[in-house]
């Protein structure tokens, strides 16, 4: 910008400043407003002023709390995410197990539960593989037995649940889903065998719990039958006793009659 332009700009600025004189507040109005403002503010109590401050501090407090909650949420999410790679014996492994338990417990559908169990079993097998890895620290090696035991339990439970779902699909005539489940069982079994996890023979047979409940049922039935037969014997006996009592009574009556005669 050249000097002429600058001079013009300065002129405009001074014109604008002059323009401000047109907006001056008349002295009497200024005094009147002053008195009105001072009269009004003297009626505003300290409490009213403090309410404004408290309101704002409450808002700030809420904002701080939200921030703190957000930080906790981020840390927890990070920990849960990091725990997905945790191996047995590490600090985050318990968190990983807790997360899996929650996942399993909040799933209502038996089909989905079976799938989740299969995923968890697969994760146990992955953990076994990771422990066997030569790059894994030696400190993890003692955990192998524990990991093997857990893998065995979870793989067998998963296969059991999958087989139940498979049967259910077969019963309903849903062959596509049934074959998909069969494939999953086969994959899981093969992977487990590779990792040296023993698949129990009773696959497809009722589980221990089922067996226990079956046994309880049978025992209850037996007990009932025994009770029933005992009851019937008792009733027969009582009936017999009653009859013999009657006979005895009749005999007494008859003997009395003959004596009278």
């Amino acid at each position: 910008m050249n000097s002429a332009d600058n001079r013009k700009k300065d002129d405009i600025q001074s014109e604008l400043s002059k323009l401000s004189e047109s907006f001056n507040l008349p002295k009497d109005s200024q005094k009147q407003i002053r008195n009105s403002v001072l009269a009004q503010i003297s009626n505003i109590t300290q409490d009213q002023k403090l309410t404004l401050v408290k309101k704002t501090s409450w808002t700030f407090g809420l904002a701080r709390l939200s921030f703190a909650l957000a930080v906790v949420f981020v840390i927890l999410s990070g920990a849960v995410y990091a725990s997905s790679q945790a191996l047995p014996g590490t600090a985050l492994y318990k968190l990983k197990m807790a997360k899996e338990n929650v996942e399993l417990n909040i799933t209502p559908s038996p089909q989905k539960k079976a799938y989740i169990k299969a995923n968890h079993a697969q994760e146990r097998l992955n953990e076994l593989k990771a422990i066997d890895n030569p790059q894994t620290p030696q400190s993890q090696q003692p955990q192998k037995e524990e990991a093997l035991g857990r893998a065995k339990t979870e793989v067998n439970q998963a296969i059991n649940s999958l087989q139940k779902v498979e049967k259910d699909y077969e019963r309903k005539g849903n062959n596509d889903n049934a074959s998909e489940i069969r494939k999953k069982i086969e994959d899981l079994s093969n992977e487990a065998k590779k990792q040296g996890v023993k698949i129990e023979d009773n696959q497809g047979k009722p589980s221990k719990e089922d067996k226990r409940s079956q046994n309880d049922k049978e025992r209850r039935q037996d007990n009932q039958q025994t009770n029933d037969s005992r009851d019937s014997e008792n009733s027969k006996a009582s009936r017999k006793n009653n009859t013999s009592g009657k006979i005895e009574l009749l005999d007494v009556k008859n003997s009395k009659k003959t004596e009278d005669n």
Binding site: S36, V37, Q40, I44, L50, L52, V53
Partner: peptide
């Protein structure tokens, strides 16, 4: 403008602690 001037000063008084 006078009303708004008055309102501004009253609001300023209330908000002064902040």
């Amino acid at each position: 403008a006078e009303d708004l001037l008055q309102e501004t000063f009253i609001k300023a008084w209330k908000g002064l602690p902040l």
